[in-house]
């Protein structure tokens, strides 16, 4: 599914990713854990194609194809979905308008037929009901005045509609209380599928109580320093990241 090979990324003079290598198999949930400043968010942005990062080496292969040369919308159409740590508010754009525009833009890019309104509405209403997204939220402008929990739920709703092959959750647990965390996690778990992989980026082990990872990778100083199974997350919860930070000194 996802193969990252020896990825080097900097912002200006500052090196952020320093030869990062990672493989995520089909249907796998891989957790990336690491201290602040490890480059976790940079990794998610670089996979999604944000401007402003200088990729000086390496490859990001999605189902065997290097996506680094593609524009963000092309990567989205190929199945990359980034659930943002801080979803943006867009006050003048109706949520439904946004959902329909993005869904159909991806379908067009893949040469599929666009969804007509009744079919689209049916899909949105079904997904909203499943994720506990109130109809009232769908009538508001995108993320405008939404609470932290509502914004994250809206991200998962979008993921459910766009059916990506790779879902990247960037610190999805930040700013969520336990109830919201449970709803969001259930939403993600419901989307687990053999042909869908997840990269779950988190600072705390807490999220992984709800979304059980297949593999856990410790990231620091722009690299994966250690990989293991779910038990590694529990170990980190005990020992913290100090061992990895000390190595840096």
């Amino acid at each position: 599914m996802l193969e990252i090979k020896n990825l080097h990324v900097s912002i200006g003079e500052r090196k952020i990713l320093d030869g990062l290598t990672l493989t995520v198999g089909d249907g796998e949930i891989a957790a990336i854990m690491g201290p602040n400043g490890a480059g976790k968010s940079t990794l998610s942005y670089v996979i999604a194609g944000r401007e402003g990062y200088d990729v000086s080496g390496g490859e990001v292969l999605l189902n065997g194809e290097n996506i680094l040369g593609l524009a963000p919308h092309e990567r989205a159409a190929k199945g990359v979905f980034l659930a943002f740590q801080y979803p943006v508010e867009i006050p003048g754009v109706a949520t439904m308008t946004f959902l329909k525009a993005t869904l159909n833009a991806q379908r067009r890019a893949r040469g599929e037929e666009e969804l007509q309104t009744p079919d689209f509405m049916k899909r949105v209403n079904e997904a909203a009901a499943r994720l506990g997204v109130a109809k009232e939220m769908l009538r508001r402008p995108l993320n405008s005045g939404f609470s932290g929990g509502e914004k994250k739920r809206m991200e998962i709703l979008q993921m459910a509609l766009l059916e990506p092959s790779l879902g990247i959750l960037d610190e999805t647990d930040s700013g969520l209380d336990i109830d919201a965390l449970r709803v969001v996690s259930e939403g993600v778990n419901a989307l687990r599928a053999r042909d869908r992989s997840f990269l779950v980026i988190t600072h705390y082990q807490r999220l992984l109580d709800y979304i059980k990872p297949d593999t856990v990778h410790v990231m620091a100083r722009g690299r994966i320093l250690r990989s293991g199974g779910a038990e590694l997350a529990l170990e980190l919860e005990e020992s913290g990241y100090k061992d990895y930070i000390v190595e840096a000194a």
Partner: peptide, 29 residues
């Protein structure tokens, strides 16, 4: 807004369409 633009692009809208949606939204206010 660069963050808004990237958000829309990351959801599948080509740059020009993303810009148009943001501009329309701005006027819609």
């Amino acid at each position: 807004d660069a963050d808004q633009l990237f958000y829309l692009q990351a959801r599948g809208l080509p740059e020009r369409e993303a810009e148009a949606l943001l501009i329309q939204g701005f006027a819609n206010e």
